[in-house]
Nucleic acid binder design. Structure first.
Lengths: 195, 195
DNA sequence: GTATTAATTAATCATTGGTCAATAAATTTA
DNA sequence: TAAATTTATTGACCAATGATTAATTAATAC
């Protein structure tokens, strides 16, 4: 029996999330079960439900972390002079992160949530942060009174990106063009329309 | 015991697919299990595995049918004079179909396939058909020597649409703009870039 | 009518998410 | 220090799931 003072509640949660991430990273989202996770951290499955409300909650927190990491990855991209360059670099950042974290990113898109699950406030906040990065990159293209349009475009870009990644991760993008190129196509289309 | 001559193999398959569709339509993709499907058609679960290779196969065939129906729905849209109108109507067609077939369309996007599942040739063919509709609508915008670019754009539009629907079905699109409007935004962005 | 072939079943396996009474460990009280 | 109380952890459950397969039953051929 795991001694009850082995970890504080917070430590245990971190341990669980880290281990969950490791399982997903190594064997994909389908390999993540409460039992496997429990075993990995030296507890039993019941304890998992003391840390997380349920499987949806576990997935939400895992994915929130992943999106946070994507955000941090993209935030650290060096500043660029033009919108073109900024968008290009941002797109490359997205693709690079997704390629280096295939299974984790796949979980963001394909985690088997319950039918009526809705993302947590924390998750949505992280997505807003990402949207902020897109807005920063495209700020030169909009007047001060076009903020609404800018955010609308950012959302559209995000949705499009999301679709490209979804199809790519499911092998449904088609053969003749890589993920990188398709994302670049999107950036080009956007620039052709707005600049 | 179901009498072995109650249905031919083909009839049985149709019966199973129709019933699967009914289950999904009514209670969503998560309600579709081999047992439930078997009971519904008056057989036992083992028989399902005589009709379909496995759960992935069942889902693939169901989704292929759904995409076919989406295609037919959009193909029957009356001809329009301009690219603008054609795209607009096509977008509306997509949204209308998705809205009228929520659960079935959700299955196209979120069916819990096995990790290494890849869509069948039949499914991919149907997607190509859809791409054809997009190309028909946008044909005026490209010269004869720009066929590659045109198809590339069509794929991009499809991926973007797919992303918009994915986020919408997961309640991740944001509140302030409807599905209809977002899809229209996409069409507008595309037109602004290419016309 | 008997032998052969093939469809259907029922039992079974391994696994899953989830709950909860029992148990063990830590903390407080006396 | 010893007993009483609180709380974390367990392990035994439950109801489902996808999938396999030997046994059974129905249809067909001889």
């Amino acid at each position: 029996m795991a001694r009850r003072s082995d970890h504080t509640r917070a430590e245990l949660k971190k341990l669980a999330l880290d281990s969950a991430r490791e399982i997903v990273r190594k064997d994909g989202i389908s390999a993540l079960s409460t039992r496997k996770l429990a075993t990995k951290i030296g507890y039993t499955s019941g304890t998992i439900y003391q840390i997380f409300k349920n499987r949806d909650d576990l997935g939400d927190q895992l994915n929130t972390q992943t999106v946070t990491r994507l955000f941090e990855h993209c935030r650290d991209i060096p500043a660029q002079a033009s919108v073109q360059l900024r968008l290009r670099k941002l797109a490359e950042g997205f693709v690079a992160f997704a390629s280096q974290n295939t299974n984790e990113w796949d979980a963001v898109i394909n985690y088997p949530f319950t039918r009526d699950y809705r993302p947590s406030e924390g998750y949505n906040l992280q997505i807003e942060q990402l949207m902020g990065l897109i807005c920063e990159a495209t700020i030169d293209l909009y007047d001060a009174n076009q903020k609404v349009q800018q955010l609308r475009d950012a959302r559209l870009l995000w949705a499009s990106l999301y679709g490209i990644f979804s199809l790519a991760s499911a092998g449904r993008l088609g053969e003749e063009r890589t993920l990188n190129e398709t994302v670049a196509d999107l950036a080009d289309l956007y620039l052709a329309a707005r600049s």
